[in-house]
């Protein structure tokens, strides 16, 4: 990465700017997902967040996960969501009562949780840097596959069964009989 290094602090500005933009988009998108009055808009905002997440994964040097994220989430899961929206709602458009009556209850809960997490994170990782430049040792796809098929083989199998069960379960549940 063509590095523009700050003289005082060896921080890659381009990365930081990229991160900031994507993060802002993601947060706005996420807020839209939970506040939008239109289900389809919410779903599209979710696409934004998920794509943003994929970009963040790239910044974290996890290309394979990013690609998978795009394929699975942005591709498959979102289509599923849109189908779900279409199949369960006749009208596509504005809907007044998407929220619970006492939805404001969520605000203090979320804020308290955010407060606790932020406090702990700032306390714990005050200025811990991610390795970058020469120190960085990006995780190769080979390392990931070694990890999946060696120490985490059993979870992998279990996951295969979960997916199988989910496929069968989804068919059984959604089937008109």
């Amino acid at each position: 990465m063509s590095a523009v290094v700050l003289a005082t602090d060896d921080i890659y500005v381009a990365q930081n700017i990229g991160f900031g933009i994507i993060a802002a988009v993601m947060i706005v998108g996420a807020l839209k997902v939970v506040t939008s009055k239109n289900v389809v808009h919410a779903a599209l905002s979710l696409v934004l967040v998920l794509a943003g997440a994929a970009a963040q994964y790239l910044l974290l040097a996890a290309e394979f996960v990013a690609v998978t994220q795009v394929l699975v989430y942005v591709g498959a899961v979102m289509v599923l969501f849109l189908f779900g929206v279409m199949l369960t709602r006749a009208k596509l458009g504005h809907e007044a009562d998407l929220n619970n009556r006492n939805h404001l209850l969520g605000v203090p809960v979320a804020l308290v949780m955010l407060g606790v997490i932020v406090w702990v994170l700032i306390d714990g990782f005050e200025d811990t840097r991610l390795p970058q430049g020469d120190q960085a040792s990006p995780i190769s796809i080979q390392a990931v596959s070694d990890s999946i098929f060696k120490p985490y083989l059993l979870p992998f199998w279990a996951l295969s069964f979960v997916l199988l069960a989910a496929v069968i379960g989804a068919i059984v549940l959604a089937r008109k009989d």
């Binding site: 209850l105 969520g106 809960v109 308290v112 949780m113 407060g115 606790v116 997490i117 406090w119 702990v120």
Partner: peptide, 15 residues
């Protein structure tokens, strides 16, 4: 809400 609230408060207490 109960679950998350309880978890948040529990975490708060622990912190």
């Amino acid at each position: 809400a109960l679950l998350f609230g309880a978890a948040a408060l529990g975490a708060l207490v622990l912190v």
